[in-house]
Computed example of a mutant assay.
Amino acid sequence: MPNTELPFDARERVALCDLFDRLGPDAPTLLDGFTTKHLAAHLLLRERDPIAAPCLVLPGPPARFAERRTAAMVRHRDFPWLVARLRHGPPFGFFRLGWVRDFPSLNEFFVHHEDVRRANGLGPRDDLPPDLEDALWRNVGRGSRFLSRRLSGIGLDIGWAGTAQRITVRAGEATAELSGSPGELLLYLFGRQDAARVDVLGPPHAVAAVQRTRFGM
């Protein structure tokens, strides 16, 4: 059972590190070319390499620089060291700020936890605590417009299935709706459309526009 006294990002961090320990360094993830060892190195670089970390969200040469730094970590550090370092938590500074932990870090660890689970046949979790569901829903609202920025020509609504919770992300004469639980919606918005349990509803041409759009960073 998760330690509910921990912040949400820390709960996901611990669960992911436990899964890393269980699966070992060579298990697949949903990320092309990324084993569990590559993913552990990526997460460490994000928090602990102040030069390369900003390059993770930039295209072209900066992204390739970050890839080289990640590859070097994979070559030179063994998997138990990477997992233990990651389990220790973020270093003092930016990644300990409350809003960073609540928003980008929770997204990062939740999505990558699911990347590992689903690539290894473990499937979605059906027992997420209500407080975590609420936190993920807040993050769906915070990030949905940016993560769907490549969608054009139609409107987009997002609904928490089974509730009255609904967000209008962008207006349009023809509107599609993404419907699912908060965690599944977050996965969809981060580009895991094939793995996310989300229904795309609306007029056929609006649904088609959503399905051909690349969501995510």
Rank of each mutant, 00 (worst) to 15 (best):
N139G: 03
L132E: 13
D115V: 00
E114C: 00
A119W: 10
D127N: 03
G123D: 06
D115M: 06
W137D: 05
W137C: 05
L122R: 07
F110N: 04
P130M: 09
A135E: 14
D134L: 15
D127Y: 10
F109A: 01
R117Y: 06
W137G: 02
E133Y: 09
P129V: 12
H113I: 02
P124N: 14
V116K: 07
R138N: 08
G141I: 07
R118A: 04
G123C: 06
H113W: 11
L128T: 11
V111A: 04
P130I: 08
V111T: 03
F109V: 02
R118V: 10
R138I: 06
E108V: 00
W137E: 06
V116E: 06
L136A: 00
F109Y: 15
V140R: 02
L136G: 00
D127C: 04
L132R: 10
V111H: 01
E133Q: 14
R125G: 01
L122P: 01
H112T: 00
P124I: 13
D126K: 09
D127M: 04
G141Y: 07
D131Q: 07
L136Y: 03
D134P: 09
A135H: 12
A119P: 01
L136P: 00
R117T: 00
R125E: 11
L132T: 12
R125A: 09
R117L: 05
P129L: 13
E133K: 13
D134F: 14
D115Y: 09
P130N: 09
E108D: 04
L122H: 07
N139L: 03
F110S: 06
L122G: 03
R125H: 09
L136V: 00
L128W: 15
P129Y: 14
R117E: 06
D127W: 03
N120I: 02
H113Q: 10
D115T: 05
R118P: 02
V111L: 02
R118L: 15
A135F: 11
A119V: 02
A135V: 10
E114H: 05
D131L: 02
R138C: 05
L136T: 00
F110W: 13
N120D: 06
E114L: 03
G123V: 07
G121W: 08
F110L: 07
H112Q: 03
L128R: 12
F110M: 08
A119G: 12
G121P: 00
V116G: 04
V116Y: 13
D115A: 07
L136I: 02
R125L: 09
H112Y: 05
